[in-house]
Design a protein around this nucleic acid. Structure first.
Lengths: 380, 380
DNA sequence: AGCATTACGCTACCTAGTAGCGTTTTTGAT
DNA sequence: ATCAAAAACGCTACTAGGTAGCGTAATGCT
């Protein structure tokens, strides 16, 4: 049962809306423009801005005459992006990477390093925390500015950030990522699957900014699907949503009598494809092209399943295939159309391998400002 | 970009919250109880109730001494459920059915009839409108009380209620169901796939009331999946979400090299299963049990695909299988567990064949009170 | 310098919450 | 019958947060 609201909810909400508008605009904004954009009176915006300046979230710039126009120059306000810093960290089987950004999501510092022992969650999380500290130094920031962080990890991660399944290892099962990281670096932490965060990133500032139901498909060396429904990550029961590819490899062998979209080991596919792609590019050689076609079929079978279950309006292909997009995408599109699948848009990632890290930043950012400014209103 | 809110939004929202609380409770409510439940002050509730009584949505009952307690007897308020009526209509290939309900969803009147010619959308929609009028008469209501309606139809229906795909016929493609019905009966109409509405019904007042990510699977004579994500219907691109079963039969033949979860014609399966079930029930005969197992495998293959793509927390099985649930469900559960799928809850429908109609009522109800009282706030 | 233009700073006012006081209506004990 | 306790009512006073719009300030143009 939803609860009623008092007026302070309105102010929190309107503050949040104003702040988001400021965050989106690269240029400083005037009160009048901001008021127009968020649909509130100038007076209200004036008061909200005063509070935000007071709190340090926004700074007022010196006035500058409007070029070409008459009239009193407006006051100009700009988000103080560095008022708060966000951390994102990602761990793979082999290495970890961290970034620190301002609240706009501008990446200010980075760190990257091979992990000591992935199968030991504790040492890996220690490494992750070190990476965050390193990235923070690289960003020239201090620990007290860090406001929130998120970790992108493989495997099925539930709504609370607990790892429920992870292929190739069982040591991570049950690890509470936010709690573990929170013990090492004392800020609120959030966790999600790297593919989900890849999708979120693409929606925030990538190829999917104009779609709300998105699947982000990483079909390279690490396979995984990320799902966005109505603009929010869909994790599914115990984080299993979109784990179809990993499920297939996990179940391989016992699976012959249960074909799931005809999947085979992604690692194997990847190797084969890498070779085939190079060959084809080099010589337009028929055998190599056949291998590309085989890989295309593999992709198409997954996308077909997606088309008739989740039916996103956009599928973003990722996973080190970006450079081969010109070869792959048209073929995949042709095959999808030939199979009479819904005419779902297909694009290559525009963020590359940074996707999950950027998504983690957005994830932390969303949670942070919901905490600070209250929930968002959706029209049903 | 979300817009800011003024105070009147709060009142609309709080009114809606109060009204929903009244709708949920079967008993009349007192101001104090209502205030407690929605988290607003008694005074605010008092004012909201006054407005609702004024508008006819709520009636005040005579006071009755509280049994067993001291103190002044409270004022008692009850939703005037019949202040507005809702219509729901459903069309199959062969017949149509309509119900008229009050805003609580109590069904007050019904009508049901064979359709003249399903392949002609216009005559079918005429029939649908007639059914609604008939059900209205049966309910003892008048046309001016009807406030909104919804239609449940097969096929892929997009967010605007336009039919995008329908197996076995092309005449329905592009038909704008809300517009067509609105021309015949002048209230706001909404449309959705019958399986989606089945899922919604189950969530509202059926087997899925305690889950928010639900798949409703009708695997009987008409096949179809309905999907609820975060409690709302997920339609997908051009309504294709969950059409995997129909897709398979549509593509059958050209599909051999693109196995989608090993599907075969649902009608065929259904016939086979009906026979098998009866045999098995009659004689525990081995051949019949083998056929049941075959059907179980068919279901399991679909559910497996669902488990790793959408990964709902609950799957509701429907489609005339209710009476066989005791035979089927344990077997399906065993096979799902054996295949190491996520341990997703499986239940039989509790609404039977009325599901889609009841879901259509809920759908109309939700749209109607969003229109009247504004959007709902979600915590992110 | 004077005027048009644009934005500012502010007062007055409205809506919709909350707090809580004094009153009313009841039950149960004396 | 009377009175205290209990429970809810009806209301006034107050606060928060919004809008309207007036008089003022700062600028460019002629």
């Amino acid at each position: 049962m939803t609860a009623g609201l008092d007026q302070s909810a309105i102010r929190r909400l309107n503050t949040s809306v104003a702040l988001r508008a400021l965050a989106v605009s690269a240029e400083p904004m005037t009160m009048t423009v901001l008021a127009d954009q968020v649909g509130l009176s100038r007076r209200t915006i004036e008061l909200i801005l005063a509070a935000l300046v007071e709190a340090g979230w926004v700074e007022e710039l010196e006035r500058v005459p409007v070029t070409g126009g008459a009239g009193r120059p407006p006051r100009r306000f700009r988000l103080r992006a560095k008022h708060a810093l966000l951390a994102a960290v990602r761990v793979n089987t082999l290495e970890g990477a961290a970034v620190v950004s301002d609240v706009r999501g501008n990446i200010l510092g980075r760190a990257r390093r091979a992990l000591r022992e992935y199968h030991d969650p504790q040492s890996t999380l220690d490494d992750a925390a070190d990476l965050v500290r390193e990235a923070l130094v690289d960003a020239g920031g201090t620990a007290d500015r860090l406001r929130a962080g998120a970790i992108a990890s493989g495997g099925a991660i539930d709504d609370d950030g607990v790892v429920r399944r992870l292929v190739f290892t069982e040591h991570w099962e049950g690890v509470d990522l936010p709690a573990e990281l929170g013990r090492r670096i004392r800020i609120p932490w959030f966790a999600d699957n790297d593919a989900n965060l890849g999708a979120l990133a693409e929606h925030w500032r990538g190829a999917a900014s104009d779609h709300d139901d998105v699947v982000w498909a990483q079909l390279g060396s690490r396979a995984g699907l990320g799902i966005l429904i109505r603009g929010s990550v869909h994790r599914g029961f115990e984080g299993a949503a979109g784990e179809i590819v990993e499920a297939a490899s996990m179940l391989a062998g016992s699976l012959d009598d249960h074909p799931i979209a005809g999947l085979t080991s992604p690692v194997h596919e990847q190797r084969r494809f890498a070779r085939a792609r190079m060959d084809a590019a080099r010589a337009e050689d028929l055998a190599a092209l056949a291998e590309v076609d085989e890989f295309v079929e593999h992709i198409v079978s997954i996308l077909t399943t997606l088309s008739w279950t989740i039916a996103p309006s956009l599928i973003v292909l990722s996973g080190g295939l970006e450079d081969a997009a010109d070869v792959l995408l048209p073929r995949v599109r042709d095959r999808m159309r030939a199979a009479r699948n819904p005419d779902i848009e297909l694009r290559a990632t525009s963020l590359g391998s940074d996707g999950p890290l950027i998504g983690a930043l957005k994830f932390a950012l969303d949670r942070m400002d919901t905490q600070l400014f209250g929930p968002v209103v959706h029209d049903a």
